[in-house]
Design a protein around this nucleic acid. Sequence first.
DNA 1: CATATTGTCAATTGAATTGGTTGAGTTTAG
DNA 2: CTAAACTCAACCAATTCAATTGACAATATG
Lengths: 145, 145
Amino acid sequence: MLSQKTRYAIRAMQHLADHFGEGPVQLADIAEAQKIPPKFLTVILSELTRSGLVASQRGKDGGYWLGVAPIDISYGDLIRIMRGSLALVPCASRYAHETCKNCVEEENCRTRALMLQVRDKTADLLDGINLCDVVDAEAFAQAAE
Amino acid sequence: MLSQKTRYAIRAMQHLADHFGEGPVQLADIAEAQKIPPKFLTVILSELTRSGLVASQRGKDGGYWLGVAPIDISYGDLIRIMRGSLALVPCASRYAHETCKNCVEEENCRTRALMLQVRDKTADLLDGINLCDVVDAEAFAQAAE
DNA sequence: CATATTGTCAATTGAATTGGTTGAGTTTAG
DNA sequence: CTAAACTCAACCAATTCAATTGACAATATG
């Protein structure tokens, strides 16, 4: 499951994508439109800003905007940034590999072999959809080809 | 991510599958072979027994065995039993649907639309592999067709 | 029937994670 | 200079997770 924080991050990014090119969007506006506790959103937007996907400006008339074109931000990127990995087990992560605790040797772990495949398929899907896509069944089927 | 408990459950079930038809396998044997804390394993095996996938017998020479043929137990089943759902968000679960807390309306939630597709693809994969399969790249590619 | 062996199960525990807030800054426009 | 914004570390309560404790029930064997 994605954490609440990751879900908030995704909605915040969708909101910024919807207002891309319109100048800074203020945190309070995002919070209200996306039903995110404003103070918690500061934590989330700070993380996203540090990651480089979001740019920000302080002071009066400040706010946030995408630092990267929405077409270049995939859902896979967002989940990797917020959760660290797309995989279901640490040892099946490609970008953030870690050995699982209390496990058998990785080479002959059948669960790992399966989970690597699941991770790759999930990545194909999540990296194939970006913040510009209107996600519906058709768009998705197309992206999955 | 799958919880440690779910990972232990998967390894325990693989172990039982490997010894299917050989009579009861004792908890201590599973625990040792699969590096699972024995007392924790009692909790896990009790849950699996209650689910019907595992049968058990008490007393001397007792133990556990699969109550269902390994070919009829998919990895999807195991994860659903242990974790409740295959989905990344509660509102995208097919068997255990729940509305997400603090979310926008489900009908026009873009995240949900995407996560439903991810769930379905994941289910295709995980339900296509069972405890009889030796999971490797080839077997998997075949199952994914 | 006595006993050792094995599974059952609820309750508890300690640690980590989650979801979120507080509050003290810093930057910027006007 | 000041109000409007973002920044960030520290903190907090509640929940979840991983695992253990300990009392109990069933079964095979002598």
